[in-house]
Design a protein around this nucleic acid. Structure first.
Lengths: 173, 173
DNA sequence: CGCAAATAGTTGTTGGGACAACTATCAAGA
DNA sequence: TCTTGATAGTTGTCCCAACAACTATTTGCG
């Protein structure tokens, strides 16, 4: 076993408590706004967004799960619900009959196009506007260092920019 | 309505994506280790720890809920489960018959004393050891700035040090 | 070819958290 | 005093995520 436990000193404890509080509150705040304004959880929003920005607005379930940091069972349940609401479609992959492809429908694109401004507003109001440009850069580095520990495979690192002024959502509107 | 949406620029988007990934992965990592090694969720661990460090190892349900950033219904359910496991006891407050006090039992103290080293190890391995002292200070400031937006009442700010080398856990052992 | 192992996905069950509804008690004021 | 409103807590219901079990297909290899 390990030697004597190295307890946290004052600075470590203070930073840790705040980080835990942040990790606890942030998901709820994101879900609350999106559910209220668009009837989507944050996870559903991210999944639809990932599909919207994929080539042909289509992606393999496994790849989508990886990009959104979800297990395949979780994504499967969510995909069923989204499909029932007409926001995505699923169809078997022609080249690999084990696989399933998912596509955002027009209704799905319209929904995220409608939801995006409010979501970005929440992101700014609750996080980005509270930080200086230096802190934004620091946050990037710190989160990167921690993710290297928490997510060694860097599945999430592959997540593309979800907020570009890009043409995807413009087309969707 | 608001004017044109200010979409995120490259730096903002990159930092945001990482922060979301961190907030998504961290709670699961903490729960996983504690559940595996002590049969406790991270929330249960924090609640027990808060009670262990309270005067008389006792706290009002409302205050405990506030310190752990839980709604009262959530805490009530958790408290019932912890009480069924013999880790806490609940009894009516003598001075206010609406209120309930919760106390950690000896078994509860023993469990967290046994769980604490592993938990601190996980905290170090997954977060603290990945950061420089400067980054630790930056994280403290950044999280503080964001919490001021997410948690304006600063309920969590009152959370005391949960990791001191302090005598509380020593007494518990 | 044929079989074992790995991969892709779905489904069922379980457990926890959010929310609403409810009871009980306290506090403030006419 | 009595009555209104606020406070403290519990309970019930619904929804979502974790996990395990399962089917189906593909791949690797003898």
């Amino acid at each position: 076993m390990s030697s004597e436990t190295r307890w946290l000193n004052t600075e470590e404890s203070a930073a840790w408590v705040r980080l835990v509080a942040l990790a606890e509150l942030l998901p709820g705040a994101l879900d609350a706004q999106l559910l209220r304004d668009a009837g989507l959880t944050h996870f559903e929003y991210v999944a639809l967004m990932a599909l919207a920005e994929a080539p042909d607005r289509t992606m393999r379930m496994t790849e989508l799960a990886s990009r959104t940091n979800a297990t395949l069972p979780r994504l499967s349940h969510v995909a069923r619900r989204l499909e029932e609401r007409g926001l995505i479609r699923r169809f078997p992959c022609p080249t690999d009959r084990r696989a399933t492809n998912a596509t955002v429908t027009e209704a799905g694109l319209e929904l995220i196009a409608q939801a995006a401004p409010g979501h970005v507003g929440t992101v700014r109001a609750s996080v980005l506007d509270a930080l200086t440009p230096e802190q934004l850069q620091q946050l990037y580095s710190i989160a990167g260092a921690v993710l290297a520990r928490l997510d060694p495979d860097e599945r999430l690192a592959a997540t593309s920019c979800q907020f570009s002024e890009g043409p995807t959502l413009a087309r969707a509107g």
